[in-house]
Amino acid sequence: MILVLIDHDRGVIDPLSLRALTAARKLGQDIEAAVIGSDGAGLVAIAGEYGAKVLHVAAHSAITDYTPMASGRALKDLVEKLKPAAVIAAGSPRGNEQLAHLAAFLDIPMAAECSEITLGNPHHVLRARWAGNLIESANVHSDLLVATVLSFSIESESVNGSPASIVEFSPNLEPADSVVKILSRDSGESKGGVTLSDAKVIVSGGRGVGGPDGFGNLEELAALLEGTVGCSRVVTSSGWRPHAEQVGQTGTKVAPDLYIAAGISGAMQHIAGMKNSKTIVVINTDPEAPILRYADYAIIGDLHQVIPALTSAIRQAKG
């Protein structure tokens, strides 16, 4: 049996969990699922639809919201009771965190961000390194495999299964398990405008923009295309733009319809965050810039000339 953690936020499923369920099904064993917190019980239908026979619900008065260490403890209790061959979760910040707690409790290895899993002795995985630029082939020496699924390596597929049967249990939490949990939330800095992850159009600037003032032109173009401004890490670490606008491995991963990269060389850590954009347009003085390999269209030239010209041409075309 394979146990899959279905992550949820106060009862609302993280859709990446459906990819984890899909990946787990490929291992050819029965699937059971777990949710942490009683407000996850409502996911019984979708758990079944994606192939889980049973949904284990960890219910405890100390689990009222996301409580990662308690998740690890609850999963440990389940593992000891059910003896699954593997515990699988989505390769999301929460999926990685909760399974790392499980692996730490059991003092066994964990393989994060796997694109392929083969059960055996030892187990074998392919996992992403360097923001997905390298694939590691690794053996996992442990009876129980603990692994998370690289989210873009798989699409979720339903099997139209009937609702899972619910088994509620109360994990044996220690006081330390629920010391760290979400205490409150707020909607952040979103100013009601277009956010980077939802934008259909992103006009992104790199070192080539030359300084904070240069971004005025990019903002104007972005506004005209009803999009928003993005940037590279050089830009945020120089303090030219806020970090919320950084695209890439340690910034935000985006996939807009149109990504305009101006004055960005295309380091792999930047590419990792934008390569899935539908159309990529590059404006760069260097005809050899690595970003050209990922581009659909390019203008070789100075962005300080090209962008204002583009803005006025679009204005004219719009009438």
Partner: peptide, 26 residues
């Protein structure tokens, strides 16, 4: 216990950008 065996480069292919031209003329 998590034993690295080998590394491989993730496949990536050149999209073959269409160069629209140079500077504002393009």
């Amino acid at each position: 216990k998590l034993e690295k065996v080998t590394l491989a480069l993730a496949p990536s292919k050149d999209k073959g950008a269409e160069i629209l031209g140079k500077g504002a003329e393009a």
